[in-house]
Design a protein around this nucleic acid. Sequence first.
DNA 1: AAATATATCAGGGTATACCCCGAGGCCTCT
DNA 2: AGAGGCCTCGGGGTATACCCTGATATATTT
Lengths: 224, 224
Amino acid sequence: MKPDNKIKVLLTDDHKLIREGIEAMLSNTPDIEVIGSVGSGEDAVNYVREKRPDVVLMDIVMGGMSGIEATRWIKDLDPSIKILLVTMEISKEYVSAGIKSGVDGYLPKDIDKKMLVDAIKQVSRGERYFNEAIMKLVFEEFYTHEKLKSPINKLPNDLTKREFEILGLVASGKTNKELAEMLFISIKTVETHKTHILEKLNLKNTNELIKYAIKHKIISIDSL
Amino acid sequence: MKPDNKIKVLLTDDHKLIREGIEAMLSNTPDIEVIGSVGSGEDAVNYVREKRPDVVLMDIVMGGMSGIEATRWIKDLDPSIKILLVTMEISKEYVSAGIKSGVDGYLPKDIDKKMLVDAIKQVSRGERYFNEAIMKLVFEEFYTHEKLKSPINKLPNDLTKREFEILGLVASGKTNKELAEMLFISIKTVETHKTHILEKLNLKNTNELIKYAIKHKIISIDSL
DNA sequence: AAATATATCAGGGTATACCCCGAGGCCTCT
DNA sequence: AGAGGCCTCGGGGTATACCCTGATATATTT
């Protein structure tokens, strides 16, 4: 972008009043120019097909095509076009769906001029614009989602304390000898424990034990 | 929790020094009592089996079972026990894995006393403790993950076709003898291939080979 | 008091994995 | 024709894992 070129912005909102409000807000900024203003997602996509704005301010809730859907289309046409979603309230579904469709930022509708200008400049530079509230929301969703989808690991609870302890260490790659040394017991004892573990878990050897341990998340793949 | 009962805390870290440091930090707090201090994930799980702490402070990186895995096991035993992960540096993988395993909070190791006490009290009330940096990190991961789904699992190695074939079979649990029989080659040849594989992948033995294979999706966990 | 579970260890054995060395046949590329 | 990579195989060795049979001590349970 040449320094004398303003950032070309397209406004999309089915409320004319809001479009005009935003346009007024941006009217006196030196680096930003509103080059268009449309009232539907379809129009936004068509507009982008002909003229190429740098940034699209997109309302989420509109009659017809939603802002999310329009975003998908526009990003498919030209991923370099930056899209800022604008929304009344921050909702989980919209944030997640918006991210999936490839938006570059999220704005509340009650934004002030400075934030708006900052956001537009930021995404036009290729950065993203998400405020704390959004990130917190994403975190919450991520947290509950990740937690719920974690499978319940059946525990081989007929193992004794010592056996359990050894199970973890064997799975992490320790040899019998190493175990004997680090636990201050003889190799024979380690072998006995291991034999019992293999019996109880119905396994054949250390190799199967490792696979068992990974499958049942006794050790994690990340730690490998 | 009765008001006259202190919050019972278990410390888990394989560095005794750090355990003692944290214990000293918590020694003069009226509402918190350190009831135990162990040096491994296995010990933590076993300890929790007998005594029931309210909160477990858990190091992530430990010899043997990781703090993440220990968390999973403890949460499976008793989800009401709150777990705070403690880590040197904040890493994407750990945060994500930690959340999946059900942790209630995340602490950096260079925490001061006030933050530590706050975090413990907060999770013991059933709230979560994650700071801004963590949430931002999760957001970043969520964003890139949702946007770019690039599950290209390439194998950055110079294994030959034959070696690769054998890698898969070894990982699936075949012994050298079995391989020799099913491939109609001698055990010596199998050994040679395996030696080359171990060299090229910088591994030590079959155990590590299995872990490597699982990590790199050469064999799937489901097939175990 | 007796039975059971747990943790410890030993002898003596076999099977397997892993190591170091060398080597011949086959292919492709230069 | 030579060089190099790949696949094949061997001798001979050590280390480790695994198996079988027992044994002792301690603690818990019945």
